[in-house]
Computed example of a mutant assay.
Amino acid sequence: MRPATFSARIGGHGVSEVVDKALVVEEAGFDQVWTGNDLFGEPGIVTLTAIALRTKRIRFGSGVIDPVSLHPVQIAMLASGLQEVSDGRFLLGLGAGSDVFFRWAGLQPARPVVRTRQAVLAIRELLAGRSPAGLEGVAEGWTEQAVLRFSRPTPIYLGAMGPRMLELTGRLADGALPLCLPPRHVHGVVQQLSAGAAKAGRSIDDLDVAACVWASVSDDRDEARYLMAKHIALYSGSLSTDALAANGLDPQEFEHTQQLMLQGREAEAIASVSEAMLSLGIVGGVDDVVAQCAALLEAGIRHISFGPPMGPDAMIAVKLIGSTVLPELRRQLG
Rank of each mutant, 00 (worst) to 15 (best):
R164A: 14
A176E: 08
R171W: 01
Y157C: 02
S218N: 12
G175A: 07
S218F: 12
P155A: 04
L177T: 01
D219G: 14
A233S: 11
T169S: 09
I232G: 00
R171S: 03
C212I: 14
G196M: 04
T154R: 06
E144R: 14
K230Y: 11
G141A: 04
V209F: 04
Y226P: 03
Y226G: 01
A197H: 05
W142V: 09
D206N: 13
G201S: 13
A229I: 01
T169A: 10
V147E: 07
R221Y: 10
A200W: 06
R164S: 12
A160H: 11
Q191L: 13
A173E: 00
S236T: 07
S216N: 04
L177W: 09
R202V: 04
L148T: 08
A224I: 03
A224Q: 00
P183R: 02
I232A: 03
P183Q: 08
V190P: 03
L158R: 02
K199H: 13
M165D: 00
A198I: 11
R225W: 01
A160P: 07
Y226K: 13
L166E: 13
A198Q: 15
D205A: 11
G162F: 07
A160I: 03
L227E: 01
A198L: 15
G188P: 05
S236H: 07
H231N: 09
G201K: 12
S236Y: 07
G188E: 11
R184D: 13
A200M: 02
I232Y: 03
I204D: 09
Q145G: 11
A229K: 10
T169D: 04
I232M: 09
R171N: 00
L179T: 14
R152I: 11
I204S: 14
K230R: 13
W142S: 09
L207E: 05
Y235T: 08
V209E: 10
T154Q: 12
R221D: 06
G175S: 07
R152D: 05
R152M: 11
G162S: 12
